[in-house]
Design a protein around this nucleic acid. Structure first.
Lengths: 304, 304
DNA sequence: CATATCTATGAATGTTATTCATTAGTTCTT
DNA sequence: AAGAACTAATGAATAACATTCATAGATATG
């Protein structure tokens, strides 16, 4: 008989287009999902997915079930929000510190949605640069920090969001365009265009260039589009999350290349105080964040 | 974590207003449901139901979950209809023979709904009296018989619908009004108002009066309202399913009394050919029938 | 006050979802 | 062309947990 677990995996299958990735998404093994799919298929006497070489494709029946899953899971989340509001006062504050500049892309629509669901929660974006943002939590100046920090610290919980790849961005005519993969040495003599943050906040410098003793010139820009514009006009190269690049790459505005053999990856966490972690609106925020990111952002991977 | 099984029991709890009746409805033990409820309550940190002496009452949280359950279960049924249509041609015929006259009450709206869901299925009500309606199935003259017959017969499946109580109906000023329970002897000297069917189709006569050698005068009417009108105007007494009586009893148009210490109960089945039983639209018809009946008809009990 | 009927609960059971270990197929590299 | 690195599928073993059983407490009914 159909159960919600099936719908949850269906949704994950749709998001990821692969059984093993979907498995990570729902915190199960690939085998478990494979068995679930088998049960579903024999229950309805219909194929749900179809192997298409490497990955899989949903059949018509599968798509119909995904449509159901989307609707149902949304309704469940809405219900659970209501239950949370019944069980306690739905007020409080959610002041967000954003360490990852590009994350504005997905955070903005998310905040709009959140405001609708929790009108009584004071929602804010804490602006300005902070050397130790997690400290802000302890000082009571913020409620969530979205960044890649996740070292254990007492009183603090790091909620995993997702892992994403950072790609090198070049102008289409850039001399390095012929290489499929860039290494540290390739950045020597280049100008690196970044957000205006210290070196130790830039993964490329911290994890790739510094260890190789490479120290390119830097130039900063506040906005992602500005960085891309500079790259396209050959003022330098940049390193940005893969998800925000798709549109620009598809239109040949810039090209993107992997950094290092395995790629340069970064993990994103939402950190809160332990006490804050149990607030229903915070949990709802996290769930919604993960859901919308996995649904809209290409190439991201579940964490943990 | 919330699962559909929880939603199914929630819906049943709402329908029946009792844990043990709901348990029968979903084919589980009372204990199983009690455990399920406990899990849900501790999961959400909220009471779902509240004991109110004999029976139970849903809390606000419970009601919210029931609302979810109704919506979700409906969507699932719609999806499964669509899947059935994908897997095979959604055409065929559903010609219904109705042995139970009062059943028109719930069958009419049900047929309207069915027509919307399965526009390509030829839906009909087979009229006229039939001495052996199940034979009609074998002869190909009908597809379902709704009645109380359920003796084993090869090639035939009897799908249980529900059990209902047949109550004696009297005028408010009837001499027998003082008795809480009527017995066979009480019907001696009364005029029995029935549908125009043979004696062996009338449970009261077959199971109560005949065995006691009581043989009251009979008078017939085609429609339930007509029977009630005759009863109210003191032309006789009748025996009708409890569910159709509520409105009339509430308005003191007639009064209803139990027949025999344990009451007179009748079981309703939908009988089909074995081959017909697997047709998706037939299964959908059965599910919908049970659902709407349990949702709208008071005092009916799950069968088997 | 006895009886029938309801719900709650802990322990035992049974079912079944999940993992483990393995095989087979596909893509990409060298 | 062969190997490496991915995929997905499958049967058996395991772990998890839903359900039943047995029972006690509670609440109406007569």
């Amino acid at each position: 008989m159909l159960e919600l677990r099936h719908l949850r995996t269906l949704a994950a299958l749709h998001e990821t287009g692969s059984v093993s990735h979907a498995a990570k998404r729902v915190h199960l093994t690939q085998s478990a999902l494979s068995h679930q799919i088998k049960v579903l298929q024999s229950h309805y006497g219909l194929p749900i997915i179809q192997r298409r070489g490497q990955s899989i494709e949903l059949t018509d029946a599968g798509k119909r079930l995904v449509a159901l899953a989307d609707k149902v899971l949304q309704e469940i989340q809405a219900t659970e929000r209501d239950l949370a509001k019944i069980s306690q006062q739905p007020s409080g504050s959610l002041r967000i510190v954003l360490e990852c500049h590009t994350c504005f892309d997905w955070l903005m629509p998310l905040m709009d949605e959140f405001r609708q669901h929790w009108p009584d929660v004071e929602l804010d974006l804490v602006s300005g640069f902070h050397s130790d943002p997690v400290k802000l939590l302890e000082e009571g100046g913020a409620d969530v920090v979205i960044g890649s920090e996740h070292k254990r610290r007492r009183g603090i919980v790091h909620h995993p969001l997702f892992r994403f790849e950072i790609l090198a961005v070049l102008a289409p005519e850039h001399p390095l365009r012929g290489k499929r993969i860039l290494h540290a040495a390739d950045f020597a003599g280049e100008t690196l265009i970044t957000y205006p943050v210290p070196e130790d906040r830039i993964d490329l410098i911290l994890n790739v260039l510094k260890p190789s003793g490479i120290n390119p010139q830097r130039r900063t820009a506040e906005l992602t589009v500005a960085i891309l514009q500079l790259v396209a006009s050959r003022r330098g190269v940049a390193a940005l999350p893969s998800w925000g690049l798709k549109n620009y790459v598809d239109h040949d505005y810039v090209i993107a290349r992997r950094i290092g053999a395995n790629g340069l990856w970064s993990d994103l966490y939402a950190s809160t105080l332990k006490e804050t972690a149990s607030r229903p609106y915070l949990l709802d925020f996290l769930v919604t964040a993960r859901n919308t990111c996995f649904a809209t952002l290409d190439g991201i991977v579940p964490l943990e």
